[in-house]
């Protein structure tokens, strides 16, 4: 094999950039983040250029995405959650386009890098905690101990709740990272088999690559949805407690 399955995750600087000893070069990862922003911009710009009462194809896509996110926020956080819709919508689009663009040939999935997901998850975790304390003050701690819990149960429950609260950013970022990493490695390995097995048996892994690609498109959608949905649920906890 010419390439290892992990080489696709290499970060290559495209434009070198150093600020105060920190290397913030414009890399292939940054390029695909830019693509994600541009793709979202193009979809919404072209889709909403002529706003018609009976939507065309692109306008339907834009409306579908909007209604999907607005519905998710309304169902999980309620009416007060709608002011966080821009953030949730952005999060969903960013991860969705990151995943989908990563599946394109020569694409790079920036969501397969734990640091990206961890940054997003930590930002959400810190924001949600701030919102919780800002809305409820010290009462926010009651999230860790549901009302009416007997003392013996509470002694066990509270440490578990504390642990589960602090594990949120970890599980949130790891889930997306593991899904994207596994999918891309699997595709790469299977594609390598096509070359190794040659003309005679190469079609077997080729069919598998085709199937796994379809699966990965599904995973790309689902993981973007799960990430946004869990953010909504955390936000709901912060706004409404239990």
């Amino acid at each position: 094999m010419a390439h290892g399955p992990m080489e696709q995750f290499n970060i290559e600087p495209l434009v070198g950039l150093k600020v105060g000893g920190l290397d913030i070069s414009y890399t292939n990862s940054a390029l695909f983040m830019t693509f994600a922003v541009l793709a979202s911009f193009l979809v919404f710009f072209t889709a909403t250029r002529r706003r018609t009462m009976v939507p065309g194809r692109w306008q339907s896509v834009a409306e579908l995405l909007y209604e999907f996110n607005a519905g998710m926020v309304k169902d999980n956080v309620g009416k007060e959650g709608l002011k966080y819709l821009p953030f949730i919508f952005t999060l969903f689009l960013f991860i969705l386009f990151g995943n989908i663009l990563g599946l394109m040939p020569y694409g790079f999935a920036f969501t397969s890098h734990i640091i990206v997901n961890a940054s997003l998850a930590l930002f959400i975790f810190v924001s949600v905690t701030i919102i919780g304390f800002a809305r409820h003050g010290l009462h926010y701690f009651s999230l860790l101990c549901p009302k009416g819990t007997p003392l013996p149960v509470a002694l066990v429950l509270v440490p578990i709740e504390i642990m589960s609260y602090f594990i949120r950013p970890v599980s949130l970022s790891l889930r997306l990272f593991a899904n994207m990493l596994a999918g891309h490695v699997l595709l790469k390995v299977l594609a390598g088999f096509v070359v190794t097995l040659g003309l005679l048996f190469g079609w077997v892994p080729l069919v598998a690559v085709f199937g796994v690609t379809l699966l990965e498109i599904l995973v790309a959608l689902i993981q973007a949805y799960v990430f946004a949905l869990l953010s909504c649920i955390y936000l709901n906890d912060a706004i409404h407690l239990h």
């Binding site: 970060i11 919404f44 710009f45 995405l65 909007y66 689009l93 990206v116």
Partner: peptide
């Protein structure tokens, strides 16, 4: 550092697109 920096930049850019373009226009329609 590079990934976090560009993540912040592009996420803020996308937030701007969503908050200023997507939501007002689609919401209006």
């Amino acid at each position: 550092p590079s990934q976090i920096f560009w993540l912040a930049v592009s996420f803020i850019a996308l937030y701007w697109v969503v908050a200023r373009l997507a939501i007002p226009r689609v919401g209006e329609v």
